[in-house]
């Protein structure tokens, strides 16, 4: 296995400079286009760079249609990017085709959103978990591994002989996690893994994922539309709008002092429990059709701070400890500080 060890650059990762942390997943200038008959090309992902290091939990936040799921599929190798590269442990990720996946890349796993659809309804849980356990192990060792996997996600060993429909949504999502763990992953991409679950099951699954990541020193790319939830789990969070990452920062800082106006709108839109009823702030306008993305800064038509300079596309630059794609980041920050 090639471990692509690089010095973590605090500009690209937003982490303190220093230590040598192996980058597990590196996404470089990835574009994803969808061509539909009789319609314009939809550019779902328009040039994204993102790294996930070993033991790091990276949150990817954005609203529906921002391209986060397209990016997840490409990053996991379910489909090929239109351009750009995705590397896992230094080697380009091979998109799934007819052929079997290279053994080394089975250590890049994915957890899906729909707990009802991510397990085969007609096979026992055990059989599906064993898909990821090497065939060369003797039967006894396979059984042992199965019990260990179920135990790790807090399920009884008897679950192995049962079928997916016998479990609740939260339990199925744990089983899906156990199946991903079967391949001894170094990195897991979780695409909205708890969106379909109730609050109590959400908390259970998120806590489980987090403890597993810490224990097994995996990397985790946690994709969600729920900024409050990402706040609970991610070390570092990237915010996506209309196919591009517009801000990356350590999660706490991102939530406490969002720089990009869109990130600020997202944070302000979270309904909070408080003694005085207060409606969440409203962001004007709607997400534009990705096939007709605005020129210049893509957030410009909805941005309360838009100015002449925003007609040109802002680069992702290092501003106030975070990476922000906003021409006016400094002015906006100064203005909001005055407000407070």
């Amino acid at each position: 296995m090639i471990n692509n060890t690089v010095a973590t650059n605090h500009i690209t990762s937003g982490q303190p400079a220093g230590g040598q942390v192996p980058v597990r997943l590196s996404i470089e200038d990835v574009h994803v286009d969808y061509r539909q008959r009789g319609r314009d090309v939809v550019r779902a992902v328009a040039g994204v760079d993102l790294n996930v290091a070993a033991g790091e939990v990276v949150g990817l936040v954005g609203e529906s249609g921002c391209g986060k799921s397209s990016l997840a599929r490409v990053a996991a190798g379910l489909s090929a990017p239109s351009s750009g590269t995705v590397r896992f442990d230094g080697a380009p990720v091979v998109p799934l085709g007819w052929r079997r996946r290279p053994a080394a890349q089975t250590r890049l796993q994915m957890i899906f959103q729909d707990p009802g659809g991510s397990l085969n309804p007609r096979r026992t849980v055990g059989a599906q978990l064993l898909d990821g356990v090497g065939n060369d192990l003797p039967d006894g060792a396979r059984e042992e591994r199965l019990a260990e996997l179920l135990n790790r996600v807090g399920m009884p060993a008897e679950a192995a002989t049962r079928f997916p429909h016998e479990f609740s949504g939260g339990q199925r999502q744990r089983l899906a996690i156990a199946r991903a763990l079967a391949a001894e992953p170094e990195l897991i991409i979780a695409d909205e893994p708890v969106t379909a679950l109730d609050a109590s099951a959400q908390a259970q699954v998120v806590s489980l994922l987090l403890s597993l990541v810490r224990e097994l020193n995996m990397g985790l790319l946690f994709i969600s539309h729920d900024l409050a939830l990402v706040h609970e789990i991610a070390d570092r969070t990237a915010v996506m709008y209309l196919g591009q990452i517009i801000e990356t920062a350590p999660t706490r800082q991102l939530m406490a002092a969002p720089v990009h106006p869109y990130t600020r709108a997202l944070v302000d839109a979270i309904p909070r429990v408080s003694a005085i009823a207060r409606l969440p702030a409203v962001l004007r306008g709607e997400v534009p059709d990705p096939s007709r993305a605005p020129s210049g800064c893509r957030f410009r038509p909805r941005c309360p701070h838009a100015a002449q300079v925003c007609l040109t596309e802002p680069p992702l630059r290092h501003t106030m400890h975070t990476l922000v794609a906003c021409h006016r980041a400094e002015e906006v920050a100064a203005a909001t500080e005055e407000e407070m």
């Binding site: 007819w98 053994a103 890049l108 085969n120 309804p121 007609r122 059989a127 599906q128 898909d131 391949a183």
Partner: peptide, 25 residues
């Protein structure tokens, strides 16, 4: 479907995926 993707991601070969995930469903 997600479960077919999941088993392919685990390294299950095309024929086995066909026999176990696609055909029975």
């Amino acid at each position: 479907s997600d479960f077919l993707h999941a088993s392919r991601l685990l390294g299950v070969g095309p024929w086995r995926a066909l026999a176990r995930d696609v055909l029975p469903n």
